[in-house]
Nucleic acid binder design. Structure first.
Lengths: 137, 137
DNA sequence: GCTTATCATATGCAGATGCTTACAATTGAG
DNA sequence: CTCAATTGTAAGCATCTGCATATGATAAGC
């Protein structure tokens, strides 16, 4: 066995990232999933709730109470979609954006620290390769 | 936000890897965790159960019934440690090694397929970088 | 207009997970 | 010798996860 399985390697990296990230997000009063929702909304401003669940890979029925909580905290708003009265669009509030950016600053600093183990070339190649490995082509 | 968070990127890769790997392991009658145990035993032949749990990042109390099942299937044996009568050493049987190798062949083929999205240079850098990102230095 | 599909929402369930406590056998330290 | 720590094992618990089903409102196809 000349090297570890990719699955094992990637899983260890994810574990390490999550362990480092959790306390940072805690300090901003966010869970991983909440952070994931806010991040996605920052990229994709108006989005139906179902599409949001799909995009972040979260169960749509469990997303509801999470959005309830985030709305209650004033980080996002749900608005009736004028074009489709069944659907609600979800949008970040300015406070949501602020909170997200504050958390993201900390997360990015942690990531930089982790990436410092790599040479500039390796780092560049890693960041180029990851999105292609992540997406089903 | 110039790029996605590392956590999000790595998590997506892991999901994709797991989705591709699960049916392969299913075909060999193994779960991910069982595969992980067998893989570790192939590298580290004789190991105390606690050390094994620690090494693969699995809960030690939940490891017991899993080892029971793998032993029942004839893939490994638990033997009293002559040096410490509290401890049991765990060892792959020839059948365990055969089953692991069969599964690993399939897993490696799947990984090759996934890595084919990368250039040879990217691939080389990725494989060099991953272990360094995975281990707490 | 009637029927079917879609969306947000609520609820339940079976299994996984991380964590904790307990206990008997055994070891090691003082 | 005595006491604390370690090992394997069992059991419990709160939470998370994926999955399924139901329902009311609305939209879209025929």
């Amino acid at each position: 066995m000349e090297r570890d399985d990719l699955g094992a390697l990637f899983a260890r990296v994810v574990r390490r990232l999550m362990a480092a990230e959790r306390p940072l997000l805690d300090a901003h009063g966010l869970t991983m999933w909440e952070y994931s929702v806010l991040t996605h909304l920052a990229k994709q401003p108006t989005e139906t709730q179902q599409a949001l669940a799909q995009a972040i890979g979260y169960d749509k029925s469990r997303l509801i109470p999470m959005l309830d909580k985030l709305a209650e905290d004033g980080l996002l708003v749900r608005e009736p979609d004028p074009a489709n009265r069944r659907a609600h669009t979800v949008r970040l509030t300015p406070e949501g954006r602020t909170r997200l950016n504050a958390a993201k600053t900390d997360v990015r600093a942690m990531e930089e620290d982790l990436l410092s183990a790599l040479s500039p070339t390796e780092r560049r190649h890693l960041l180029a390769a990851l999105p292609r490995l992540a997406d089903t082509d």
